[in-house]
């Protein structure tokens, strides 16, 4: 599989991702935010495909768009309150937060501008098609311990979520 690495698709997908991100933090209604977040996630999955990382793109679609976002929508429906939509949406500290975030962006940009020369213009040729197999071998080889810890983390998360959300255990 050879993803089409054209600038057009890059700008389209990153535009979608950033527009979705903007909508996430500006919508009053949490469901609309969730929809915008889904757009962002799918656009980022497209960017992964352009970076020759099909397995990560597939995981992104299954876990994020199909799993986590459904969980979010489920919870939004459970805790939906009519009045939260009419209330103030931003907390009292929002100018400070916005300023801090903009400072962070400025920092990033200055680092990128200064370190521009450090990034190679030529990227290595696309890897072989067996991306999934190589990731599998790495996960069960070099990163075996981290993989097991991740499964333990998931177990703890399941237990924690059940204990938190269940009325009577």
């Amino acid at each position: 599989m050879t993803p089409v690495a054209t600038p057009f698709f890059f700008y389209l997908l990153s535009g979608l991702a950033i527009a979705g991100g903007l909508l996430v933090i500006t919508r009053r209604n949490a469901v609309h935010s969730a929809l915008a977040l889904i757009v962002t996630l799918l656009a980022v999955a497209g960017l992964y495909l352009m970076l020759y990382a099909p397995f990560v793109a597939g995981v992104q679609i299954i876990v994020y768009a199909g799993g986590i976002m459904v969980l979010f929508l489920f919870v939004i429906m459970l805790v939906s309150l009519e009045r939260t939509i009419k209330e103030r949406q931003f907390n009292r500290m929002w100018p400070v937060g916005l300023f801090a975030a903009c400072a962070l962006l400025a920092l990033f940009m200055s680092v990128f501008a200064k370190g521009r020369a450090l990034f190679p213009d030529r990227v290595p040729p696309p890897p072989e098609a067996s991306n999934t197999q190589q990731i599998g071998v790495m996960l069960y080889g070099n990163y075996m311990f981290a993989f097991e810890i991740a499964s333990l983390l998931l177990l703890v998360a399941i237990l924690g979520a059940v204990i938190m959300a269940k009325k009577r255990i």
């Binding site: 991100g21 903007l22 933090i25 103030r88 907390n91 916005l98 801090a100 975030a101 990033f108």
Partner: peptide, 13 residues
């Protein structure tokens, strides 16, 4: 995207 996320965390209620 990172900065958008940070703005969301710091300002939304």
């Amino acid at each position: 995207l990172f900065v958008l996320g940070v703005i969301g965390v710091l300002t939304r209620r």
